[in-house]
Design a binder for these strands. Sequence first.
DNA 1: AGCCAGGCTAAAT
DNA 2: ATTTAGCATGGC
Length: 280
Amino acid sequence: MSATEIPLPVRDYDLAATLDSGQVFRWQKIENSWHGVIGKNFVQLTQTKTGIHAVTTAPVEDWNFLRHFLQIETDLAAILKTFPDDEPMRAAVAACRGLRLLRQDPWECLASFILSSTKQIVQIRQIVALLCERFGEPCGVDGFASFPTPEKIASVTELQLRNCKMGFRAPSLLAAAQQIARGKFDLEKIHAMNYADAREELMTLRGVGGKIADCVLLFGYGFDTAFPVDVWIERALQELYFPRRRASEKRLRHFAATHFGPHAGYAQQYLFHNMRTKKK
DNA sequence: AGCCAGGCTAAAT
DNA sequence: ATTTAGCATGGC
């Protein structure tokens, strides 16, 4: 029996921190709740005492798409226990109680992070918003649209993409969309690969280097060992763990892979969000 | 006005 | 093998 709302009981889930931690770029806080689009569904999420309450515009038969996106079933406490017991991690965990990793659609995640390079999060939001407004499908709520498919983006011109303020990232996005739409690149097969091969495969795409590949693997596929190293994390690792000598990117990646454990990606998100939100 | 932003690529050491 | 400019655009 379909409905337009459902309560999702869950503990230790900070919806605001999660939706505003630079994993996703088009969720909006409106009054006391968060509005966004998952696939073709407009969804309104509200934090409650017992978990998260979801409301949609269209009736929903199967809510698993939402449970999957929110990763409701994830045992956060078990993950936190695997973090290294050092001062930076303790501080980050204490400051970001209930921060979670979402599980996004791989294409939306890939496209968004191709657009993220050398952009502030506010600006990434603007670019993605323009892209969806112009090339996505309306979902019944004013100002909200689906994320445009690879086929749709492959059918527009580089200039149309540049007009979404994405600058030199436009040809990269267009090329990725074309390869996927034409069956030259298969996002599905990434699921079955190991981390190293999957990373290498994603990096064959133009405009996708190690950092963006790691974001897509972590946020879109659930490779928890993926540890995106951006300017924030690089500074954090440098200051907190290598205060004297300057460590190369290769060395930092090796440190991250060996020091933070099987859920290094989660640890990274805690460090990132803590760095970004703590006021100096 | 100049610097930097959840980087990547190709050229130059 | 490792370091460095150039790349569009906008906010501060």
